[in-house]
Simulated scan of single mutants.
Amino acid sequence: MMTETKRDVFDEVRYKFRNFKNEHRHGMYASPDSIDHYLSDALKRYDAAFPDDLPVIPKTVGDILRSAHGQTNLLGVLDTAKNGYKISETLAWIIANQNTFALAWGLGIWCVEETGEIVKLEAEK
């Protein structure tokens, strides 16, 4: 699964163009066609990349979101959390970070606090 963010794509394009500039100084030449092709590919990757500002949540909270996947309202998700998870730390985190929790649920994508892994819930088929 791709876990590239928009910033990752931007940073690579910036690096690549810095190299084009250095190559040109040393007598090497990149054709306009090769640059256009590279930019077209980079734009597609940028469009497909994840946002930079993903919600960051603990793994246990992500487990709740995974178990509630497919529910269509936030109250149902919170009910799943309340009934299915008696871990007070996790519920306390959700209460203290309601907006982040709701954003992760709404987007269906988040970054795991402990590992930095990006998790994306896939649409049900």
Rank of each mutant, 00 (worst) to 15 (best):
K44V: 11
A49F: 04
Y46D: 01
D41N: 09
A42L: 01
W93Y: 05
E23Y: 12
G70E: 10
A92W: 03
G27N: 06
P51L: 06
A48H: 04
Y15L: 08
I64A: 07
N97D: 08
Y38F: 15
E89H: 10
G84P: 01
K82P: 01
Y46F: 14
Y15W: 09
W93F: 04
K21N: 08
K82F: 12
S34C: 04
L54G: 07
D79H: 12
D52S: 05
D79A: 13
K16A: 14
I35P: 01
V77G: 02
N97R: 06
D41Q: 13
A49L: 04
V61K: 04
L54P: 05
A96Q: 14
W93N: 04
K21S: 09
D52E: 09
K21Q: 11
S40E: 12
S88D: 10
L39D: 02
L43E: 09
D53T: 03
R45D: 05
I94M: 06
L91W: 07
Y29A: 10
M28C: 03
H69N: 15
L43H: 05
A81R: 03
L43V: 08
M28K: 15
S34I: 10
A42V: 02
T60A: 15
G62Q: 03
D79V: 06
K86N: 12
I57F: 04
M28Y: 11
N73R: 12
D63C: 05
Q98D: 09
A30D: 10
L65T: 06
P51E: 12
N19E: 15
A92S: 14
G70L: 08
I57A: 04
H24S: 12
M28P: 00
R45C: 02
E89G: 09
R66T: 11
N73V: 09
N99D: 15
S34V: 11
S88P: 01
T80Y: 10
A92H: 08
I64L: 14
G76F: 06
I57P: 02
H69E: 13
T90R: 03
E23P: 00
R66P: 00
D33K: 13
K16S: 10
V77T: 05
L74F: 15
A49T: 03
N97A: 07
H26S: 14
N22D: 11
A48E: 13
S67A: 15
T72S: 13
F50Q: 03
R25W: 07
P55G: 07
P32Y: 03
K59R: 15
R18T: 11
L75A: 15
F17P: 02
G84A: 02
S67V: 11
D47I: 09
A81D: 01
A42D: 01
D63Q: 12
T90P: 01
V77Q: 02
Y15R: 14
A92Q: 13
F20Q: 06
I94Y: 02
S88Y: 08
R18P: 00
T80F: 09
S67Y: 10
I35W: 01
